[in-house]
Design a protein around this nucleic acid. Structure first.
Lengths: 211, 211
DNA sequence: AAATAAAGCTACTAATTGGTAACATTCAAG
DNA sequence: CTTGAATGTTACCAATTAGTAGCTTTATTT
């Protein structure tokens, strides 16, 4: 094992620890939300002392921002890996399903929904904003394509569709159905897809078979 | 002016102060959220010292619970005053419009959407839970009626419809469209109604003319 | 083995927050 | 006018939290 190998091992250990911290942060953000999560919580969840976290992240805000950046990267990667021949509306449905399943597994939506404080923090990060704009551009293009193919409502402006779509990825109805309903994850995802694309009004629901 | 009149005047002053406190609380809850709102904030907004708030409410939780109860009472009252001959789906649309306009005016949705901490606090109050269940029963009956009249999707279970409906009353897309779009309140309400009842997919939108 | 560097922790600091004690002011009763 | 009650405030308390100083432990280098 060469010196280079040893250095890599140490770097790997550092990275592993960093990922463990980010995992714990994501889990706690989903459970408690940004305003109630504490660095003590994260430290305890990882199994380190609080000051040790500051070897990896310079502040709580830095930590949360990096966790959210990782989520956005996940969504961008997911979009990238969808088959090129997939119809635009199917892309949107697939990403929505992915996001909902992440949430049902205890994860976070890839965009913060309502917390103005989080938003203020995140928009201070160029790395975060760059990714969010990239994702938005890609989804906007997909929406435009889907409209052209009569897959999405042409009566709704793109930004209305996009913001509503984002809101469906973090729809609180998911938690309520989980807590108070009798549905498994597949059923919840299916219903949420219907609600997103066909609404709750009378019409022809367009269910997508769960993957 | 009789002694009784004086007592009533004092009671009125007390009630006026209490309403001012609740107004301030509602405004701050909408702006900062439950976890970031402080009693100092409320006191400053009202123009009293913090300890004075405790003459009216025994804790921060009591204050917030009463503010939310007042909102629920508002929603129940609004439902009550709708014309008896109004179609069920129109009732739902009317209440959604009311809720959205309240929010666009700086107010709060009548049900908390995602904050588990708020929910835990509110469910400790019998007065709150009683009202929430009452509203839910009324809306469930309306949904059942609307389904019978083929106004709502019969493919979606009632609770899916209801939780989605509640989520639309606090849809974060409203804030985003307000912040980043070029829409006035009427347009936002109209779009949100379409998104709620017809979804974002291709179909026949069922716009309701803004009142 | 000794010295140095890196990693990790205990103990601490400053600031904030919900709520209270004690004091001050205003109002009402005698 | 004096006294007591009611209302309101300043100052304070205890607990919590982000972040840091200084100490300890572990790993690496000489």
């Amino acid at each position: 094992m060469s010196v280079l190998g040893k250095l890599r091992f140490k770097d790997q250990a550092f990275k592993l620890r960093e990922d463990a911290i980010l995992d714990a942060t994501t889990k706690l953000l989903a459970a408690k939300g940004f305003d109630l999560i504490t660095m003590d919580d994260v430290a305890e969840e990882v199994g380190l002392s609080k000051p040790s976290l500051y070897k990896h992240f310079k502040s709580k805000e830095d930590l949360v921002t990096e966790a959210m950046i990782r989520l956005l990267d996940g969504a961008l990667a997911y979009l990238d890996e969808l088959p090129a021949e997939m119809a635009p509306v199917e892309r949107l449905k697939s990403l929505l399903e992915w996001a909902l399943r992440v949430r049902l597994a205890g994860g976070l939506p890839f965009l913060p929904s309502t917390n103005t404080h989080v938003r203020a923090v995140l928009t201070q990060s160029l790395r975060y904003v760059t990714r969010a704009l990239k994702l938005n551009r890609q989804l906007d293009a997909i929406v435009t394509d889907a409209k052209r193919k009569a897959e999405l409502s042409s009566a709704l402006p793109n930004d209305v569709i996009l913001f509503s779509y984002y809101a469906r990825t973090c729809d609180p109805a998911v938690e309520y159905l989980r807590l108070f309903g009798k549905y498994d994850d597949d059923a919840i995802v299916l219903h949420m897809q219907v609600v997103c694309f066909a609404g709750i009004g009378a019409g022809s629901p367009q269910p997508r078979q769960p993957g």
